[in-house]
Each structure stands twice: as structure tokens, then as C-alpha cells.
Amino acid sequence: MHRKKRVNRMSLYFDNAATTVHKPSVVAKRVAEVLSADSFGNPSRGAHLYSLRAYQVVEETREAIKKLFHATEGYEVAFTNNATVALNEVLKGIIRPGDHVITTSWEHNSVLRPLYQLEQAGAQLDFVTSETSTGCLNYQEFEEKVRPETKVVVCNHASNVTGNVLDLERVKAFCKKYDLLLVLDISQTAGVLSIDLGDEEIAAVCFTGHKSLYGPQGTGGVCVRKDIVVEPVLTGGDGMRSFSKTQPKEFPTLLEAGTANVPGIAGLGAAVQWGLENPAPAQEIVGRYFIKRLQELPNISVYGDMNQQRVNVFSLNIADADSALVSDLLWEDYEIATRSGYHCAPLMHEALGTAARGTVRFSFSRFTTQEEIDQVVQALSEVAGRK
């Protein structure tokens, strides 16, 4: 592919599966308020008004998250600085040597690497594989892999490579049948799909604030069922039981050692409240339009199941070109921001047959327009036509 002289056009951002950059204005405003008001101290670290104001910010956000996920009184929300920390805390807190874990080829390294560490410590792992043609899970393998010592099932709610969405009801029924703990990574679905914890079948959902919740980077957490026994991975100050040699066992303190990110949590709370008050439009309309336009182009391979429920994450390749080259051309010549490579999901690429070159990933937000899609398709058409 030959380089083309850069054209003068506005840059377009299509890396929302990594981080959304277009945030509601209330998010920055709320973060700035907390940082600049000279009024917010350390939550749960004092009885004075500065501490109480901060505590109120954290608790209001906690309640907004519970409302978003339709969480019953049987759940508690603990804040972390992203989904990776939340997953590490949950997985390392509940899985012990000898426990058997079933997970999938969809998983991000924020699940895989903690599980590999646990495997080294004596846990046992099995992976449900995916179809090469669509990336869909081979769901019958859940039944094939269950054992008497199986304790936990860990699943990505939606693949950050293909955009395929988990058949959650089927997996929940499987876990209920065998009395297994279901841990769900909702990094790609929180704020996009309805997350309903009302039946209390899910042990924990781990979320991040900076993707489709439209909150600040460095925010996230876990909504965990209170009856789950979790050993704390991080221990430290809780502001209350200073003479105890161990971390308090109660949620959320069990998972919230140290000082909370009050400005970030305030911004996350503003984002979640904004989302609750402004339901997202039918985002699949933009995704369907993108796929329809892609079908007009030659030499484009798109990965995933386009006929089932999905999130707006699309991975593709152009002919036999390396994904990094295509992504670089899109940015340098068209100022279109995409993500190339493996997206921290190596098993998914092995399943799709893209382990050698990765994929170019386009991921949309609720603010993506059809006009922007048209610009992207035009750019892809030109890149695909180069010799």
C-alpha cells in the first residue's frame, strides 16, 4: 500500500472500546467542582463536614450504580480504579488451590492473567472455545467441562474483538444448575446493554467507568453479592478499625482499602446519572449501517456474528495487509483513530485465525453518527483500493 498525502479533514475517533473521549459535559464539571471547591476531604476518615461531603459523593455514586444494574439489597458496590483491579480482587479473592474454573476464549487479559497466576498456585482452568467463522462460543462445552470441583465461571459479557454478546441467560441457567459462582466482565456492556441483577444469579459484575458509562479514566468497580466469601487482595487503612490486624470483612470496606478517588467517583456518578436520565438511542442502528456500507467494499473481512445481538465493536482486515499498517494509514492520511493488533484478547485471535496480524477495530459510542460512518467507509474504500 502506498502512502497518500494527508487530507485536511476533522479527525474521527473510533476507539471507544478502549476509552470514550466524548463525555457528557456534566462529568468534567462535577470533577472540577470536587477538586476546586475546597470542600471535599477524605470519606469515612473523619466526622467533620469535609469528610462527610466526600462520603456523600461516594455513597450517591454507589446508589446510582446499584440503580443502573437493578441490584437488590443483596449486592454491594465497591469502587476500584478500573475493571482490571476489580477482576483481580474478585478472582483472587474467591478462587483457591484445587478449585476448578471455567472461562472462555473471549476473555481479556484482565481475566486471563489473574487466572494464569491462580493456575500456577494450584487452581485448574478450562476454556470454552469459539467458532472460527463467527467467533461465537461453543456453549455445549460448558456442560462438557464441568467437574465436581468446579467453583467459578468467568465470562466476558461481550467480546472486545468481535462485539458478540454472551447468551447470558443460558450461562446463568448452567451456573444455577451446578451451583456455580458466575463472575461477569461487563467492561464493554455497562451503559450499553441492560444489566439486571434482580434475580441474584450473578455473583459479581466487574465494570469500568471510562468506556460506555462515559465517566473518567481511573474509575470502576465491582457489584458483588454480599453472601460471597472474598478474601481481600489489597489491605490497608479503612478509617474505622485501626487496631484490627485484618481488613474488615464487610462490603464495601473489604475491597476498598485506602483513600477513594473522590473526584473520579464524583465524575462517574455524574456520568451514570446522566445516562439514567438520558437513555441511549438505539445504537445498533449505526452498527447495522456500518456493516451494510462495508458490504459495498471489496477485500474486507469482518469478524463476528452480525446476525445476533451485539455491541458496536467491529474488527476487520483489508486483504492480506497487516492491521497495524491499515490503522496507521487511517490515522496519518485521514485522521481516523482506530485500534490495531490483538486488543489484549489473544485467545480470541487464535480462534479467529488472526493471531499473525491482529485486526483493525472500530468501536462506536452513543455519539457516533451515520455521517461519520460514511467518511470512514470512504476512507476504507480508498485504502483497500491501493496497490
Score class of each variant (00 low, 15 high):
Q217Y: 14
L137F: 02
G122E: 09
V26D: 11
N312Y: 07
V90S: 14
A18W: 02
A203K: 03
M10E: 14
K4Q: 10
C344P: 00
K92R: 14
W274I: 05
D322V: 04
L68S: 13
N42R: 12
A379D: 03
I94H: 02
V171T: 10
T80S: 11
G98V: 05
T103N: 09
D126V: 09
P232L: 06
G191S: 11
V152P: 08
I291V: 15
T235G: 02
F174M: 01
G264T: 06
K67Y: 12
S44M: 12
G135Q: 08
V326G: 01
A173E: 12
L168K: 02
I186H: 04
T162F: 02
G46D: 06
E372V: 06
W331Y: 14
R339G: 01
L352Q: 06
D320W: 09
D196G: 07
D320K: 14
F314I: 14
G358Q: 05
A337W: 06
E277D: 15
L255Q: 10
S315Y: 11
T359L: 08
Y116G: 03
T338D: 02
K292F: 12
M10K: 13
E107H: 12
S105Y: 11
Y178G: 08
T354K: 06
D185V: 04
P252D: 13
L213D: 09
I291L: 15
Y342S: 01
A270H: 02
L12S: 06
G264P: 00
E382Y: 00
N156Y: 00
G41D: 04
K387C: 05
R96G: 00
Y178K: 03
D167T: 08
G221V: 10
Q309G: 12
C136Q: 08
V230P: 01
S133R: 06
I373S: 05
M240D: 09
F290M: 11
H157L: 11
E89K: 11
G198L: 07
G258N: 02
D328Y: 09
E382F: 02
S105G: 05
S301I: 07
F243W: 13
E141I: 06
G135K: 06
L197A: 08
V154G: 10
L180S: 00
T103R: 04
D196H: 07
T150Y: 03
R9I: 11
T132A: 00
G220Y: 07
R96K: 10
V85S: 02
Q140A: 13
S315P: 12
A203N: 06
G358P: 00
M240G: 02
T235Y: 01
